[in-house]
Nucleic acid binder design. Sequence first.
RNA 1: GUCCCCAUCGUCUAGCCUGGCCUAGGACACCACCCUUUCAAGGUGGCGACACGGGUUCGAAUCCCGUUGGGGACGCCA
Length: 471
Amino acid sequence: MKVRTRFAPSPTGYLHVGGARTALFCWLFARRHGGVFILRIEDTDRERSTQASVDAILDGMQWLALDYDEGPFYQSQRFDHYGAYVERLIDEGSAYHCYCTPQELEAMRTEQRARGVKPRYDGRCRARTGAPPAGIDPVVRFKNPVDGSVVIDDLIKGRIVISNDELDDLIIARPDGTPTYNFTVVVDDLEMDITHVIRGDDHVNNTPRQINIFNALGATPPKYAHVPMILGPDGQRLSKRHGAVGVMQFREDGYLPDALINYLVRLGWSHGDQEIFSRRELCELFDLSEVNRAASVFDTDKLNWLNQHYIKSTDTAMLAGLLEEQLTKRGVDVADGPDLGVLADVQRERAKTLVEMAEKSLFAFGDLNGYAEKAARKHLKPAAADGLRAVRERLAEIAAWRTEAIHEAVVETAEAVGIKLGKLAQPLRVAVTGSDMSPSIDATLLLVGRDRTLARIDAAITYIEAHGDPS
RNA sequence: GUCCCCAUCGUCUAGCCUGGCCUAGGACACCACCCUUUCAAGGUGGCGACACGGGUUCGAAUCCCGUUGGGGACGCCA
């Protein structure tokens, strides 16, 4: 049978990394087996579902290049399907109307908690006879089996057995007739011929209920694979307070989609000692049997390392385009500066993110925004003035503004003036970039350009003369 | 509280199923050194873990039981 997987987020917020990893595993599993990957939007809760969230999810999927073969299907547009199944279960005696009020149920639960037992519906409406109470719109409850137990042969966790007396009669339709999650999932997984349900392991407790519904419908449940959770550094479930968790936030923060994908896939899955995987490799190698059973902690350091790896191996034109986005976002006029390809190539080894790359490249555009205080104090001293004058003169004579010529000019000036290269390069670096950290001095000058370089050296000499207190 | 799941370096993990090849391997981070005009990148080396207690066995990270710890679920949310 052809593999069919689905990713079924509820649109109540952005696509977070946990969801993204689940989607990735679903996608990979489908690709690996030449199957079909379906996107289904679980928006039966109209109170909380928003179009903005749907868009955010779609954007996230697109950015990560997790393309789906079918969908997106919206549950809110499939209410008639669910209604028919509800009717059928009622007719067959597998579901019943319940007239208990929310207050009543709440009281029941508090009482049960107080007794130290698991809060669950006691089935008081199961055998209700006589006329229905007036003025109450009933919910519909599924008649969960009373005896026996449900076995889940989870593809990741192994065999899980849950006794039916741990379960209760869950609500499958609200008073207004709208269906609830555990029911729509079953109907959709059934109607969409899903063969493998791959989802977060916060759903394992729902699985036996869903299997029971499948059984009541006379259908065979799909195979289940419950992926462990992603935790924050404090061991708690990953959430907003841990920082960036929305997929699109990672884009904002300068991460490459391939880097995030690679990071996420290794979080819980491994293939021997291999760390770097191309999408192609993943599609060939991914297997649920290699997915870890334990939860894992999200580690930004490792993501950063991977991101830099991908930055280093992205082709120049692509990287230049990405850098341009970042620069433009920062209000930089990219026309007023060096070739972005050249820039990207010198910066790719010194930035973990595109954001960092852009920030470290600002010196090559527009005017200098002052000097970093410590750097100026250390390097823009009277002792450096002669070197700067000499190198300015030598630089001004260069015919073609190229790395080699610049390099030569700097090295020769240092020799001529009789100082070590560093004694010249550092003041020059501060003069030209405002900071004592930048790419190699020849590359830096190349990026800054001849006119700016000369003007900035002049400015630095003026600065030294004004502040030159030889203490 | 009840039920379910989980447990190897700080973190991600290999090894576990099919005990011996494990004085437990790799990666990130960290530290040191090398390279070096700064910052990086790169190279070399180092630090660092089988949660604990029983059992089975000639032999256990690997199998079994318990303890502890962590996570999840217990909605007319999904």
